[in-house]
């Protein structure tokens, strides 16, 4: 029950984020979506995910507010509102229909189809010695996935730094010194 209330809050927050007139209100609405998602993880008894979602949400919110603080760009959505609404309606109906057709064979919520999870639950403590089974799975049984995830983050940081360093933004013929 509380999960559905949280989902409705998240949907309202997402719609509000799109419809807000100024950017900071929209960013705050996105933050509300993230916080509701964090509480939803807590309700579903996943505290690891809740902590991670909370701190990442705060970091993203700070970065977004910092980036949008002095760049309030109200954009016009008037004009082709009939065409836009029609496209949104058609795509929403299409994706919901296809999603219902594809996902109706999924197992019931809370009863996973993967049998390997039971083996992790039974033997995790004796095999790894970690009492937090989430840590046991992501850093021992599935550590190779975590290595790929870490590589993705590393590549993302390198990409951001490579795009935004000062040498990449200088004009032709301009001498720029690297200061950091």
């Amino acid at each position: 029950m509380i999960l559905y209330i949280l989902l409705i809050i998240m949907i309202i927050g997402a719609i509000a984020a799109v419809q807000m007139q100024d950017l900071i209100s929209a960013v705050i609405a996105v933050g509300a979506v993230g916080l509701a998602l964090s509480i939803a993880f807590l309700v579903l008894k996943a505290p690891d995910l809740a902590i991670t979602q909370l701190v990442v949400e705060i970091l993203c919110l700070i970065i977004l507010i910092r980036a949008t603080l002095k760049k309030d760009l109200p954009f016009s959505t008037s004009g082709r509102w009939f065409f836009n609404t029609l496209v949104v309606a058609v795509f929403t109906v299409t994706f919901l229909g296809i999603g219902y057709y594809c996902l109706k064979d999924l197992p019931v919520f809370g009863q996973p189809i993967m049998k390997v999870a039971n083996i992790y639950l039974e033997t995790g403590l004796s095999k790894t010695g970690a009492s937090n089974l989430v840590a046991a799975v992501i850093l021992d049984f599935r550590a190779y996935d975590t290595l790929g995830e870490a590589t993705i983050l590393f590549t993302a940081v390198i990409g951001v730094i490579a795009i935004m360093r000062r040498v990449g933004r200088k004009k032709v013929g301009e001498e720029v010194e690297e200061d950091e």
Binding site: L59, I62, I63, R66, T128, G129, A130, S131, A135, A136, L139, D140, A143, T146, A150, L153, F154, A156, V157, V160, I161
Partner: peptide
């Protein structure tokens, strides 16, 4: 306890913390 898991946690936290700070 738990063998390599705390060491992996420390390595990942160094990577994530420094990476996100440098992005900011």
């Amino acid at each position: 306890s738990a063998g390599i898991i705390p060491l992996c946690n420390i390595a990942i936290s160094l990577k994530v913390g420094a990476g996100l700070f440098s992005i900011f």
